[in-house]
Design a binder for these strands. Structure first.
Lengths: 244, 244
DNA sequence: ACCTGAACACCGTTCAAGT
DNA sequence: ACCTGAACACCGTTCAAGT
């Protein structure tokens, strides 16, 4: 998790029930929900002030009453989605139940799954605890499990940060920047992968022995498996260091 | 490492020595070098077509002769910096020298260090092996060390990807989005951290026991230490799985 | 308190034209 | 082959004004 930003909060309020129907009326929740819809449909690039305003049925300037700008909107949208993850894992590790490392695994996988499906999320998840309450709570929740391993505060801090970094980083990387044709589903991901595979196979085996060694694995790989395998390594290392 | 992109190469050539001085004349290398300068000075946001053209002393359209667009420019700039890392670690693990896991650590740390100093790099490093040759070679180099551990191709693939994912992800996360005042050095990073720390201390200790447990560590932490600690966990896990 | 419309300053990219 | 200038279509954000 990176450093956290601004303390100052923008003047944001909930909208009340509209009295007259003469003008459109929003609420932060509606704004964020609209933003998430657009983001899911067309990615970070698709979320423009005007596109969101149109979807909400108002003018582009209205959004600025709820949000200080585009960056904050993205942060809030990301945090809203992570709120869903938080709710989904709310029972994990309750009152010290379950094996802490297994609990960490469960939470991490839940986070990963949600980010991989929403490539736009990677860049904005858990990066500003000041405005991202759910992110903070997820960080807390992971940390609480790791605390149970009896490590020093320093090791606790490092381990938790490593896991969050790995989850977000890997998910962001995997979801990242598939060229637009792929992202919009025009070209199948499989055909796309096949292109990279073809390219790798054409490399000189003397110069690229490793690439050739793993190209078949790459060709048939599943992002989730790959993530889980990496997480296993990290958690094995954690398990080991908890035993010392 | 994410999926790789396009096979098609844009029509890029080297410029010859200018015959007349009437017009400015570039070269890809000059274009990329100029881009890196701007990126280092003012981040990804600062790299506009016009800013780069001005620095090169020409019109904004000239860049498009060397590069298909902004995205490719960023990819090439990132890869150029990683080329430096590749050169710096070229002797690591030569002809099977050294302990493979130590070699992986060395390479990973070198990558991390370069990315943390250049926050813009995180988002573009190692994401497109078609245009990023040095990234591919770095991936290969890490992979070759891991091959020496005697794992299956699949485990090899997973382990290498996990390490790359961790390095890039963590570095990107840490370098990310310090608010502009901080990025430009106006506000000290320490004072900035202090703000987040203050905020964390104000949280309810009943609700956030973990945050309170580690807040002092967070307050005085060093990004490099934090990264290395996480890398240790990962490599410990790898060591373990190589022994099975 | 909340929304509007129009405007401002900027951006990436294209293209016909020059050398 | 390589560069230019001007234009196009778009963007985030602001602001005076409305309700």
């Amino acid at each position: 998790m990176a450093v956290m930003t601004e303390q100052a909060q923008p003047p944001r309020r909930r909208a009340r029930a509209p009295r007259e129907r003469s003008r459109t009326s929003h609420s932060i929740d509606a704004v964020i929900a609209g933003a998430i819809e657009i983001l899911d449909e067309s990615g970070s690039q698709g979320l423009t002030t005007r596109a969101l305003a149109t979807r909400l049925g108002g003018g582009p300037a209205s959004i600025y009453w709820y949000v200080s700008g585009r960056e904050e909107l993205l942060d809030l949208a990301a945090d809203s989605v992570l709120g869903g993850v938080l709710a989904a894992v709310s029972d994990v590790g309750r009152e010290g139940s379950g094996d802490p490392i297994e609990n960490v695994r469960t939470i991490a996988v839940a986070m990963f799954d949600v980010i991989v499906d929403r490539p736009w999320l990677g860049a904005y998840a858990m990066r500003n605890t000041a405005r991202q309450v759910h992110s903070l709570q997820l960080y807390e929740k992971l940390g609480e499990q790791i605390m149970r391993l009896g490590l020093s505060p320093r090791d606790c801090f490092h381990a938790t940060s490593a896991i969050v970094g790995f989850v977000i980083g890997t998910a962001a990387d995997m979801g990242q920047q598939l060229p637009p044709e792929v992202a919009s589903g025009d070209v199948g991901r499989d055909e796309y992968l096949a292109g990279a595979v073809h390219q790798w196979r054409a490399l000189d085996p003397e110069e690229y022995p490793f690439i050739h060694h793993i190209v078949d694995e790459f060709a048939g790989h599943d992002d989730r498996d790959q993530f889980r395998a990496g997480l296993d390594l990290l958690l094995d290392g954690l398990h080991l260091s908890a035993g010392r």
